[in-house]
Amino acid sequence: MIDIMAILLIFFGLFFFLSGSIGLLRLPDVFSRLHALAKADNIGLAFVTLGVIMLEPNILNDIKVVIIWLLVMAASAISSHLIARRALREHRGDD
């Protein structure tokens, strides 16, 4: 039962990753694409992390996966902000 739930969670996660990638292709400008990537990947990785934790009995590995999730989330938020700032300043002609 736990295995089935874990696999379902991982599939939910993959669905959000796919949405993020589709957003990258379909949305019209850099800012909108950043929304798709940051948000869909964040929640996608959360679901994959939950699924992996359910499948992995070793608590140390579970902590490791959670730390990786937090680090990826921080990197995603910071890089989105930096890319958006650069794009906005270029658009305004500041640089």
Partner: peptide, 16 residues
Amino acid sequence: FISSISLLPGTLCADL
């Protein structure tokens, strides 16, 4: 705060 804004629905912090 600035890092969290970009992960909420519909918002992206572009500059400060």
